[in-house]
């Protein structure tokens, strides 16, 4: 090993004579040949095209996890927007024309609703992707 750069490397260096006792043989030629044969056969086999059409195992669980993660923030976002919509027109009405005092909070809430739709609409897509990747990892 190189010169120790920290206390861990120094400790490993101290243990090196003991750790070096554990010598492991190389894999046998027969094992390497058999592995190469199996792997090569797969290499030339047609790659199965993963289908996204089917709902992968674990999709519902992933979706539930995502929904649980956004549930609490959603409550706050809804409460905040309700507050804006109900309170802000009255507050702004003191300085602005009535139509504008309503239009501004309404535009804000509409924009927020659009973002919410985007976020929640994408959850099933994200859940599908995560479940599919997990399934592929397990192959």
């Amino acid at each position: 090993m190189r010169e120790p750069r920290n206390d861990l490397e120094a400790a490993l260096g101290e243990l090196a004579p003991i750790l070096e006792r554990d010598t492991v043989p190389e894999p046998s030629d027969a094992l390497v040949a058999a592995t190469l044969e199996r792997a090569s056969a797969l290499l030339h086999a047609p790659v199965p095209v993963p289908t996204h059409a089917e709902i992968p195992v674990g999709f519902k669980r992933e979706l539930a996890k995502l929904l649980a993660a956004v549930a609490l923030p959603l409550v706050f976002v809804l409460a905040w927007n309700a507050f804006i919509l109900l309170q802000l027109p009255g507050f702004l009405g003191a300085w602005l024309p009535e139509s504008l005092a309503w239009a501004l909070p309404a535009a804000y809430v509409l924009g927020a609703a659009g973002w919410l739709a985007l976020v929640f609409g994408s959850l099933p897509v994200v859940a599908h992707r995560r479940a599919w990747l997990r399934h592929q990892e397990a192959l």
């Binding site: 894999p27 094992l31 058999a34 592995t35 190469l36 199996r38 792997a39 797969l42 290499l43 192959l139």
Partner: peptide, 10 residues
């Protein structure tokens, strides 16, 4: 060992 290489290829 075999399984690792199979996974690499897959």
């Amino acid at each position: 060992f075999q399984e690792s290489w199979i996974r690499v290829v897959k």
